[in-house]
């Protein structure tokens, strides 16, 4: 197998040490940081994502792979910057005010990172103004809002209203998710997209970037 194939395999198996060794070897052999990232690290994560969607592996396997991917990305960071390579996109994610649930949000974050996004996590119980400030400061391509309770889902609309009031709505695509959320609800509150689970959230975020 080639270095790139081995790198992809090492990510899928969550072997961080092997990932670092293979990156060193790859750079020494003249492979570009971009290829090592795209055709090694991200390809491995993408293949594992397919296996996850097919119910062949569980989340812990994906998380351990994501750790290995992050180690690899860190190792490549300096070279990627030097080569002028940018992340696929930037995302800001958070659970809305009054809601303390974070597992679903964390899963989405993990999937986004695996898909090559640079992700800023604002945490749980996030006030509207903090989302507004994050758009101003981080200039993300996508904002992802989570709510698990029927009594906090209304807050999703409130955040979007606050973003509109700040004149920032056109700058960012907004996705919403959480157990009580439906596609119809997402449309009603003016979101750009809704996804029912973590794996499809990353796909939707990618497609929103392409459409932008």
């Amino acid at each position: 197998m080639s270095i790139l194939e081995n790198l992809s395999e090492a990510v899928q198996k969550g072997r961080a040490k092997d990932v670092l060794t293979l990156i060193e070897e790859g750079l020494a052999e003249g492979l570009s940081a971009q290829r090592l990232l795209d055709e090694g690290l991200l390809k491995g994560m993408s293949l594992l994502g397919v296996r996850f969607k097919n119910n062949e592996v569980f989340v812990p396997e994906v998380l351990i792979a994501a750790r290995a991917l992050n180690k690899g990305s860190e190792a490549l960071k300096a070279q990627l910057i030097a080569d002028g390579v940018e992340a696929k996109g930037k995302a800001v994610i958070g659970t809305v005010k009054g809601d303390l649930h974070d597992i679903g949000k964390n899963l989405v974050k993990m999937m986004l990172e695996g898909a090559g996004f640079d992700v800023v996590d604002l945490g749980v119980d996030v006030p509207d103004e903090k989302f507004v400030a994050a758009i101003q400061e981080q200039t993300p391509d996508v904002l992802l809002l989570s709510a698990l309770l029927t009594t906090t889902m209304g807050q999703l609309g409130a955040v979007i209203d606050a973003i509109k009031a700040a004149g920032l709505r056109e700058q960012v695509k907004i996705m919403v998710g959480g157990a009580p959320i439906t596609h119809g609800f997402a449309t009603e509150i003016g979101a750009d997209g809704y996804s029912p689970d973590a794996a499809s959230a990353a796909e939707l975020a990618t497609s929103l970037l392409v459409a932008a």
Binding site: G98, T150, T151, T152, M153, G154, Q155, P180
Partner: peptide
């Protein structure tokens, strides 16, 4: 029981 979708 709980409330329908609404803010408290």
């Amino acid at each position: 029981f709980t409330l329908p979708p609404m803010l408290v």
